[in-house]
Design a protein around this nucleic acid. Sequence first.
DNA 1: CGCTTATATAAGCGTTGACTTTTATAAGCG
DNA 2: CGCTTATAAAAGTCAACGCTTATATAAGCG
Lengths: 137, 137
Amino acid sequence: MHAFDALGDPVRRRILELLSQGEQTSGALTSVIRAEFGISQPAISQHLRVLRESGLASVRAEGTRRLYAVEPAPLREVDAWLARFRGFWEQRLDALDTELARGRRERRHGRRHGGGDAHHAAHHAAHDGRTDEEERP
Amino acid sequence: MHAFDALGDPVRRRILELLSQGEQTSGALTSVIRAEFGISQPAISQHLRVLRESGLASVRAEGTRRLYAVEPAPLREVDAWLARFRGFWEQRLDALDTELARGRRERRHGRRHGGGDAHHAAHHAAHDGRTDEEERP
DNA sequence: CGCTTATATAAGCGTTGACTTTTATAAGCG
DNA sequence: CGCTTATAAAAGTCAACGCTTATATAAGCG
């Protein structure tokens, strides 16, 4: 299964968001997801399996707990695929947050290229936590 | 429909790859995709509709032709989502190719980042082919 | 050991998605 | 105008997906 396929599901994206902060037990993930999406434990277990099988997450047993972690390789591939589109926004100033995430802000003060509006940045900085607002029926 | 959902399909990803080199008519896209995936014209038309409706592509009529183009906004969102995982590989050496793909070499030579960065397009034109190797049954 | 906790698998079901073939729209052109 | 080209929409089919309930495995603990 291609990584993009696995990433199509909001539950799985959310799981990865949670894992981006570090290893989590299946149980911890399950309680958050259950609360947020209202689905059952087996449903989440199945999503975890998809993440495992698509290489996006790895598991480590510790007693009866399963510790999940992000496995970056497929995400790096997604990132690489996306690279060909960066030209579409990268020299525009409203991509400032992306730039910041990459730590290249030094350029803001050197002689700059584009024109105006830099106000987008603060705007995006605020949106922490979940990026997806969609919900399941 | 979330961008990630639309990107889950290899045909749609391939269409976007083709569009990353510039505007294309529905017909041009159709012949390439038909050759590569062996699916019908209506099937491709439906994929184009999904791309339109998910905001990933825009259309412009010119006579009886429809000119499609990449619409970067949702891809930028995907990029932003992905940002939180970059730390997983960005300082590791085995991410070298990704770094290169992002054109980080500008930093190695003097920081010439000024004007209209047009080399993105030509560069990508070189490695034309498909990135996805998967196929439909 | 038997009970509970943590997690996965199995089986079944409704919905969605990606096709197909067929048909519509609409511009170009003789 | 009628015919052809370019593209989309409609309707139907089949497989895949995401969910559920029920059940299995296996470690911890009294």
